[in-house]
């Protein structure tokens, strides 16, 4: 038996504003209202034990207006996007997309400063954006040092044996990070996408 004890801190009154906001602003949120709390998603999750609430309960918390508890939950970060839940959801709710969307919101609104998955995502994004690919050293260094200098060194040293073995096996190279072919074009595409997103959000806020 695997029991997850954590509950959202403190009671509050039901507040529909957050739920409505999620329905309208989060990718896939328009179907979220259909959730009937059956538990298929949480039960199907291969790493359900590594989630404080699991998607099903998180969705109920959204309805109850528990914005802070939702956006600080590790459920949105620990999703591995296996899509088991999406395939099985009897109401065809894009659970994965919604969790991803909530993660974006959490980052944007500053709810996830210490969230390791968020930090890793930033490191990953940095590498992809600048080099068009993930560079193992760059991503890990970015990720480790996002915890601070001392913590960064500590983590780096702890993983040094693995790094050495990877070099030996030819899975990691020394020298400057390789840049993917067309990385500059990719950067331009990303810049355009960011611009569109920004514009759309501004329009959305006006409506």
């Amino acid at each position: 038996m695997r029991t997850i004890a954590a509950a959202p801190a403190g009671s509050r009154t039901y507040d529909l504003n957050f739920a409505r906001w999620v329905y309208q602003n989060v990718d896939g949120g328009d179907r979220l209202s259909l959730c009937m709390q059956c538990g298929m998603c949480s039960g199907s999750c291969p790493i359900g034990t590594a989630m404080d609430h699991g998607p099903r309960k998180l969705f109920m918390m959204i309805r109850a207006g528990m914005k802070e508890a939702v956006l600080t939950s590790d459920t949105i970060w620990n999703c591995t996007q296996c899509y088991n839940c999406v395939v099985r959801c009897p109401r065809q709710i894009p659970v994965t997309n919604i969790l991803q969307g909530l993660a974006t919101v959490a980052v944007r609104e500053g709810y996830a400063p210490e969230q390791p998955t968020a930090k890793f995502a930033k490191a990953f994004w940095f590498s992809v954006k600048h080099f068009g690919r993930t560079d193992e050293r760059l991503v890990t260094a970015f990720f480790y040092f996002s915890f601070g200098l001392v913590e960064g060194i500590k983590r780096g040293l702890a993983n040094l044996p693995i790094a050495l073995r990877m070099i030996k096996a030819g899975r990691m190279h020394l020298g400057a990070p390789h840049r993917a072919k067309g990385a500059a074009d990719l950067r331009a595409i990303i810049a355009k996408a960011e611009e569109i997103e920004k514009r759309e959000r501004a329009q959305g806020a006006q409506q």
Binding site: M1, I4, C38, M40, S42, G43, S44, G54, R88
Partner: peptide, 25 residues
């Protein structure tokens, strides 16, 4: 709503899912 069923020992089927009232997996 159980998520899945797998084959266990002694031909016992194993039921997997989340108890929505206790959050037990």
């Amino acid at each position: 709503k159980p998520a899945s069923i797998s084959a266990g020992e002694n031909s016992d089927p194993i039921l997997h899912g989340e108890d929505t009232l206790t959050r037990e997996l």
